[in-house]
Design a protein around this nucleic acid. Structure first.
Lengths: 205, 205
DNA sequence: TAGATTGTTAATCGATTAACAATC
DNA sequence: TAGATTGTTAATCGATTAACAATC
């Protein structure tokens, strides 16, 4: 069954499973079980088995899952058995940190370009990248065939940037600006706002 | 009813509502409705009314919600009508970006200290902060009465840092290291890993 | 008053868990 | 074989939505 409309909440857990599996591999582990994985992640074993069963049968009764094999299967499901090029828009503190971030390696992502609109930044170096002029955003992204972008501009510019990204063909946006974006429904948006996470915790303090 | 065990998923939406309300205020708006808010956020009006009704009656039939008043109520619920001091651990790209981040202002959070273990960084400046020695983490955090921290260290150090934070009395941790933390259950943890968000989107591409 | 929108109830929908036969 | 763990079904649990009386 290639695609029987999997709940998005299940898709959301797959990257978590994958990250844990890659961590286990780094610890030189080769086999795991839904129970062990669940304990590490604070998720029930039944839920992990149910989630995985949406996509196929990846385990063996009695022994569990081959970590290598399961990781590879999840990578294929998530389309991260390839490497996605990412454009970063905004070369301030956050954009620069993200462009230099080492954590994309081996996880199917790589930053390939970074844009800003400030003359003082255009042409300067951020890590190994030369900051590009945001005026060329659409043509550069189109030429590069880039489908994934991260917005790290001030809130006021974020929607405008998003509109340009869409017309350049971007289909997935990770938005660091603390504002909701309006996009066409063939485009995915995810949000990272540390304050949202922090406020969610202070309720309990 | 001060506390009838509100679902965590409801708590998780309150910061989103608050952010949208503050945005509306910045646009000089003074009244809104569950319908308008829902359209902006992609959430049903019924859900917003249901969520809010868990905490009290904040609206007026026929006219909707006073944005100012509702924002203030949500701030009180989330305990962000005060300002929480935050300790940042790790003065690399991410820790430095977070320490300098302007987005905490008026949202109940402020960074007050940043730590690292590298002699080359200790004593140097990150924004207006002088990087402190991680060796003094426990005593500095205890003395400051800090309850909220962000971890921006390499994955290998994150659990060790978390342990120290707990013994220093920290009760809420926002973890940027791509690894699951184990903590006692009086402590809240939230995670930010851009790759998790990106992989969640590439499934659909 | 007429129109609009809340707060809340009941119905629906969807997600999680428990349990177990199958089988490695 | 005996023990362990999967994949899956059915039962439970919880969250969302629809609908509407109350009322501004």
């Amino acid at each position: 069954m290639p695609d029987k409309n999997i709940p998005d909440i299940v898709i959301g857990r797959l990257p978590i499973y994958l990250r844990a599996l890659q961590r286990m591999l780094a610890e030189n582990r080769h086999v795991t079980s839904s129970q062990e994985l669940g304990e590490r992640l604070g998720i029930s074993a039944a839920q992990i088995r149910k989630d995985l069963s949406q996509f196929g049968e990846f385990g063996k009764q009695g022994t569990g899952y081959s970590i290598d094999y399961l990781a590879e299967q999840i990578r294929q499901i998530l389309n991260v058995d390839q490497v996605w090029d990412i454009a970063v828009v905004g070369a301030g503190d956050i954009g620069s940190a993200v462009a230099r971030y080492q954590g994309f390696a081996n996880r199917g992502m790589q930053v390939t370009m970074i844009f800003d609109n400030a003359p003082s930044k255009i042409g300067s170096k951020v890590g190994s990248f030369t900051v590009k002029d945001i005026a060329n955003l659409e043509s550069d992204i189109k030429r590069g065939g880039v489908k994934v972008a991260m917005i790290a501009t001030p809130s006021e510019k974020a929607q405008e940037v998003a509109d340009k990204l869409l017309s350049a063909g971007v289909k997935a946006i990770l938005n660091y600006a603390p504002i909701n974006l309006t996009v066409t429904d063939d485009v995915r948006v995810q949000y990272i706002d540390p304050v949202i996470h922090l406020q969610r915790m202070t309720y309990y303090l």
